[in-house]
C-alpha cells in the first residue's frame, strides 16, 4: 500500500554538512511552526512589556503582551512535540503516529 513512502525520505542530510546539514536535519514542519510562532511571541512580548500598549486602540487590554504569551506557549508545544517524537527516516508509515 505505501511502498512509495520508503523512497520518499531521501538521505539528504548525509550528503550535506555544516549549517545546511543541520538545517535540513531540523527541517520538520513542527520545528518550523514552533520557531516562527516563538519568534513572534518574543517580539510581541517585548512590545507588550516595553512598547506603547496603545490602549486607546485596543480599548483597554495590553494586546501585544497577551498575544505574545499565547504565541510562546503554542510555539513551545510544537517544539516539544518535534523533540519528543522525532521523525524516523524510512519509517514504514510516517503518518501513523499522530
Amino acid at each position: 500500500m505505501s511502498t512509495e513512502s520508503n523512497k520518499a525520505e531521501p538521505n539528504e542530510a548525509d550528503s550535506n554538512s555544516g549549517l545546511l546539514g543541520t538545517l535540513l536535519a531540523l527541517f520538520d514542519i513542527r520545528n518550523v511552526i514552533g520557531a516562527l510562532l516563538s519568534i513572534y511571541g518574543v517580539i510581541l512580548l517585548l512590545m507588550g512589556l516595553f512598547g506603547d500598549p496603545e490602549v486607546e486602540k485596543t480599548g483597554g487590554p495590553n494586546a501585544n503582551l497577551w498575544a505574545g504569551i499565547v504565541l510562546l506557549v503554542i510555539g513551545a508545544i510544537f517544539i516539544a512535540w518535534g523533540v519528543l517524537k522525532p521523525v524516523v527516516p524510512d519509517a514504514p508509515h510516517p503518518g501513523d503516529k499522530e
Binding site: 512509495e4 513512502s5 520518499a8 539528504e12
Partner: peptide, 26 residues
Amino acid sequence: GIGFLASRGMSSSVDFFLSGRSLPAW
C-alpha cells in the same frame, strides 16, 4: 527558507508534483 530547503531535499518528479506521497494526514 522553506522553499530553499525543500528544493535541496528533492530528488524526483514524484517528489515535485506529489511530494513523494510521504506526508502525514494532519
